[in-house]
Design a protein around this nucleic acid. Structure first.
Length: 216
DNA sequence: GTAATATTAAACATAA
DNA sequence: GTTATGTTTAATATTA
């Protein structure tokens, strides 16, 4: 394996800026329209989530005993709406998301250094800088940014490429990592395409159970 | 030093 | 047969 540390622009990612903005008024157990999947929003990767979310009775729950269980995050039926578009804007170095008309996001550059609170993540100065987000977080954001809250893998790829040009020039192994995360991480669940009328092919929904969040 | 977690790579299976 | 997708395993790096 190549020395992956050499192409990483940041060395000590800041902690979880999106979660830090998370309004924690979480309703209980919304169910996805497909009924097959409990729509629990979830992201792995934030070791500080329990701290960030301190004061909430998110743990423990019997079904949350697994480390990858992210129900705490997914207890909001519209998590990223709770985050708000500013959050998505804040995490994408290239996009200002404007979904007010339901249309696709249109790329527009952000001010230098606005992508995250990490001063080392500067798209203008480092266009190929690796985003300071875990794959779990990227996948989560992609899914949550979709109107139906579920995406086929290809669209997850496209979302990541659209928002983070780093991956356009990155080795294709990142797609394998995306798939690996989708399979391994319990915060994502596959949706049977036959039960989804809004997507082509199978899709993924984020499932928040446990200790997920963005690692920043 | 240890455990947990993330990343990356690889092999393999399955479906379109 | 090819490609995309999905699962699993393993090695390695990072962090608490």
């Amino acid at each position: 394996m190549a020395d992956s540390t050499t192409d990483r622009c940041q060395q000590t990612p800041p902690i979880c800026p999106c979660i830090s903005n998370l309004p924690l008024d979480l309703p209980s157990d919304p169910v996805c329209p497909l009924s097959l999947f409990t729509r629990t929003v979830g992201l792995n990767g934030c070791r500080d989530a329990p701290d960030v979310l301190s004061g909430r009775s998110l743990f423990p729950r019997p079904e949350d005993e697994e480390l990858t269980n992210l129900n705490w995050l997914h207890e909001s039926s519209n998590l990223l709406n709770s985050f708000g578009d500013p959050v998505l804007r804040s995490v994408s170095p290239v996009l200002e998301l404007d979904h007010s008309d339901g249309g696709p996001p249109s790329p527009s550059p952000l001010p230098t250094g606005s992508a995250t609170s990490d001063p080392t993540f500067d798209l203008k100065q480092n266009p190929n800088c690796k985003p300071p987000y875990s794959f779990s977080c990227l996948i989560f954001m992609a899914i949550e940014d979709s109107p139906s809250k579920r995406l086929p893998v290809k669209d997850i790829y496209n979302w990541i490429l659209l928002h983070f040009p780093y991956f356009a020039n990155a080795p294709t192994g990142w797609k394998n990592s995306v798939r690996h995360n989708l399979s391994l991480n319990k915060c994502f669940k596959k949706v049977d395409k036959d039960r989804s009328q809004r997507i082509v092919g199978c899709g993924r929904v984020p499932v928040i159970r446990g200790r997920l969040c963005c690692e920043l």
